[in-house]
């Protein structure tokens, strides 16, 4: 009887995982890469419709994924790829909201299944496990480095409406992203995509720890 129950449990888990994988293929694969592309290029950046997800298991936190997939809100103010969503504004370029489409919304069971399937996606590449040491960071110093001293705010927001729009907002990073991913991406964005429009600033270890700590300490939507 015990063997029967174990087998049943295993069967259910397998079926569950298969559902998540199927949903990934059905709902996500049209816009997101679920496996590493043979090569990257600028043309690929221009043609892809959503961020790559083939390293989602290294990138995202499960609770955030499950919640966001049920009630998605825009992470990239300028969309993906930002260059496709620009128009002339009153004083320079502006985001053309009419070209941005809402993300697919899933029911709870599907969100759980998809989140688990996403978290099973890993690449041998580039997230350095244990790289972020977790030391407390002064919020004031962190904000100063994020803004004036290292220039991250040129493209990213650390509070709603505060900062640039060509990169993803980072005021929800602490609930959305894994700290080691944040560290590794800041350290070398081109390890994830050789052509991505976030530059490698060549930051040293103390900057990487400070900026990662600052972002991971930010409460979603709080003013830094």
């Amino acid at each position: 009887m015990r063997h029967f129950l174990s087998a049943l449990l295993l069967l259910s888990a397998t079926a569950f995982a298969a559902d998540g994988s199927q949903l990934l293929q059905q709902q996500c694969a049209q816009c997101h890469a679920l496996s590493a592309p043979p090569q990257t290029s600028i043309d690929r950046l221009w043609s892809r419709k959503g961020p790559d997800l083939y390293y989602a298991g290294d990138k995202f936190q499960r609770n955030w994924l499950v919640a966001w997939l049920q009630a998605p809100v825009r992470i990239r103010p300028g969309g993906e790829f930002y260059r496709h969503h620009l128009k002339d504004g009153a004083d320079g370029d502006a985001i053309d909201e009419t070209t941005l489409t809402p993300h697919v919304k899933l029911d709870k069971d599907s969100a759980v299944a998809v989140a688990d399937a996403l978290l099973a996606l890993h690449t041998p590449a580039p997230v350095e496990s244990g790289a972020y040491k977790g030391a407390a960071v002064s919020a004031t110093m962190g904000a100063m480095f994020f803004g004036k001293l290292r220039g991250c705010a040129a493209c990213h927001q650390d509070a709603p409406g505060k900062g640039g729009m060509s990169g993803p907002e980072l005021y929800t990073a602490s609930s959305r992203l894994n700290a080691d991913y944040v560290y590794s991406y800041i350290k070398h964005p081109q390890a994830f995509d050789a052509h991505v429009w976030m530059p490698d600033a060549g930051l040293g270890e103390s900057d990487l720890q400070r900026l990662t700590g600052y972002l991971m300490q930010l409460k979603s939507g709080a003013k830094p």
């Binding site: 600028i42 930002y82 260059r83 620009l86 002339d88 320079g92 370029d93 060509s166 052509h195």
Partner: peptide, 25 residues
């Protein structure tokens, strides 16, 4: 093409320094 990919975010579609990131700088 490189300008359109990397520089436009700050320097703007019209190359006039008025990209989408410029307003907050």
């Amino acid at each position: 093409r490189n300008y359109d990919t990397y520089c436009v975010q700050c320097h703007g579609v019209h190359r006039n320094g008025k990209g989408i990131n410029a307003a907050h700088m």
